[in-house]
Amino acid sequence: MTDLTGRTVLIAGATSASGLAATRALTAAGARVVATGRSAGKLAPLAALGARVDALDLADEHAVLALSRRLRHDGMPIDGLLHLVGGWRGGGGLAGQTEDDYRALEPSFSALRHLSRAFDEDLRASPAGRLAIVSSTAVARPLAGGANYAAVKAAGEAWTRAVAHGYARSAREAGAPLRAAAVIFRVQALAGLEDRLAAAYAGLWDAEAAALNDSTIELAQEGRSTP
Rank of each mutant, 00 (worst) to 15 (best):
A51M: 03
A168V: 08
G93H: 12
N148H: 02
V85F: 02
D60M: 04
A48P: 01
A174L: 11
I78V: 13
P142E: 02
T160M: 03
A209W: 09
T23G: 01
Y167T: 03
A171W: 06
Q188V: 10
T160I: 02
T27L: 11
D60R: 10
A140Q: 12
A25M: 05
A207D: 15
G19F: 07
D54I: 14
E106Q: 06
S126C: 06
G13D: 04
L219R: 06
T98L: 03
V183P: 01
A55Y: 07
A59P: 01
D120F: 15
A22E: 05
T137N: 00
T137E: 12
R179H: 11
I217L: 14
N213I: 11
T23P: 00
L193S: 08
D100R: 10
L190E: 14
E218K: 04
T216E: 13
V64T: 10
E208G: 13
H114C: 12
G6Q: 03
L81T: 03
A198I: 11
D3G: 01
G93T: 11
G175S: 07
F119M: 07
S108W: 00
N213L: 06
Q97A: 06
G37H: 08
P177F: 01
G87S: 04
A51P: 01
T216S: 11
L112I: 08
L46W: 09
V9I: 15
D60L: 09
L46Y: 09
D79H: 08
H165M: 14
T23H: 03
I217Y: 02
T23M: 01
A95M: 13
L94S: 10
I133R: 02
F109C: 07
K42N: 15
P107H: 10
S110P: 00
R89V: 00
L65P: 00
T8H: 13
L193C: 07
L65K: 14
L178W: 06
T5W: 03
